[in-house]
């Protein structure tokens, strides 16, 4: 009796898994693995998108600041206009996006061609502020370029480039 029971138990342990068990294991593995894989991939892709967009936005911010510096030198730019505007400054997004080259650069990194430049207003924001410094002859200009990628809410800016310029008062 005991010998029979032993051989029965032995057979049971050696019989392997049933199809149902394999199927169940696969489904559980799939359910757990796919969201995890997506989580890692999407986090990585988001970081990659930020790295991809960074040189473009930095160049645009530099371009805007260089142009402003030139306008100040030419006497066509009133710095006092940008002294207000809250913590970060006055919104100059529309003025920046009116430029064809800037629009094209933004167009390329957002990946949607041939669309009106104003559509990017919701995706990037450029703020300019000016404030006096400890040296009465110098004024500090600060340009903040905010942007997000298309996977985020329209008005939630996830990335930011800030450039500062010290300019001598003419």
């Amino acid at each position: 009796m005991i010998a029979n029971y032993k051989s029965l138990t032995n057979m049971k342990t050696r019989q392997g898994m049933s199809l149902l068990e394999v199927l169940l294991a696969t489904v559980i593995f799939t359910l757990a693995f796919i969201p995890l894989m997506r989580l890692f991939s999407e986090t990585g892709l988001s970081q990659q998108r930020m790295l991809r967009d960074f040189p473009v936005t930095l160049s645009i911010a530099e371009r805007v600041l260089m142009t402003i510096e030139n306008e100040i030198d030419e006497g066509r730019f009133d710095v006092a206009m940008f002294a207000g505007g809250g913590d970060k400054g006055v919104d100059i997004t529309e003025a920046v996006l009116e430029n064809n080259e800037v629009s094209m650069a933004l167009d390329k990194f957002y990946g949607q061609d041939n669309m009106d430049a104003t559509q990017y207003l919701a995706r990037c924001k450029v703020l300019l502020s000016s404030k006096p410094t400890a040296d009465p002859n110098l004024i500090e200009l600060k340009l903040n370029f905010y942007w997000n990628d298309r996977n985020y809410e329209k008005n939630k800016f996830t990335h930011n480039v800030e450039l500062q310029l010290l300019k001598r008062k003419e």
Binding site: V56, S59, I60, R63, M66, E101, M104, A105, D107, K108
Partner: peptide, 10 residues
């Protein structure tokens, strides 16, 4: 795929 960079020099 095209990539554009726009900048300015003072």
């Amino acid at each position: 795929k095209e990539n554009v960079i726009a900048n300015a020099v003072k």
